[in-house]
Simulated scan of single mutants.
Amino acid sequence: MSSVEGIVVSNPTPPPGYGPQDPQQPGQYGQPGQYGQPGQPGQQPGQYGQQPGYGGQPGYGQQPGYPQQPGQYGQQPGYPQQPGQYGQPGPYGQPGQAYGQPYGQPGFGGIPGNLAAWPNRVGAWFVDALIVGVPSGIGSAIAGNTNNSVLGIIGLIFYLAGVGLAIWNILIRQGSTGQTVGKQVLGLKLVGADTGQPIGAGRTFLRQLTHILDGLACYIGYLWPLWDEKRQTFADKINNTYVIKL
């Protein structure tokens, strides 16, 4: 304590670490203040640790001031994957489907874009008529123009073979696969308009019966696909069927 012109002035006692008795400054070489501890004046607190002023981001992890963009190194932001695209789940957990529902799946109710042209249908009918008509015609010719019992039996066999081929080709084969031999040759298929699938033997039989209506009034029903939007005969309209091109 000293006195200047009668005024008593008290010398303050310096805090520990700031006097001449302790020349080593705090925050140096392992002293408090290094690596995030309070350091000497001028040293930035938290050096080599958390950088101040950068939102509390680590200094040597994510760069301060440059927050990681969402979706970085994964899905890019701004280009979200469309729900349901390429088989991904759609919104609300529903399975998605790319490019709409293809024809031939259950629940189809629209008009397919690959309806068979009328000349192709005629060509398929002609092939099927040959398959059935040749053996039947041979049998009828033999049985009807001979009195020989053996030839008569041979003619009957040919005729029955034609009937059997008709049942197999038109009812069984077409009912299960949608194609007779003629339709397969021309690349056609008979399907239900409601399902896009083959219609079965029973429904195919009913369709064959309703072809009777197509033959009335100069076969107008068979010509109907020429100008009809759905390219259907009367039998197709009654049985709700399409003939499509594969």
Rank of each mutant, 00 (worst) to 15 (best):
D128V: 08
Y103P: 11
Q101C: 01
Y159L: 09
V191K: 12
G90F: 10
S136G: 13
V132Y: 06
P95E: 00
R173Q: 12
G87Q: 05
A193I: 08
T195H: 10
S136Q: 09
Q197D: 13
G192A: 12
V132G: 01
I212W: 11
V132W: 10
F205E: 06
A116H: 03
P77R: 02
L171Q: 12
Y103A: 12
Y92E: 08
I157S: 01
A124N: 12
P77I: 05
T204F: 00
V185T: 05
V181G: 04
P135E: 08
W118G: 02
P91Q: 14
Q82P: 08
Q82W: 04
S176G: 01
V150D: 12
T210D: 09
G104R: 06
K189N: 08
I111P: 10
Q76F: 02
L151F: 11
W168D: 03
G155H: 00
I170M: 14
K189L: 06
S136D: 11
G152I: 04
G196Y: 05
F126N: 03
N120L: 13
G87D: 00
V181I: 15
G175Q: 03
N145K: 06
L115C: 05
Y99E: 14
P77W: 01
V134C: 03
V150T: 13
S176R: 06
Q184N: 15
G113N: 04
R121G: 07
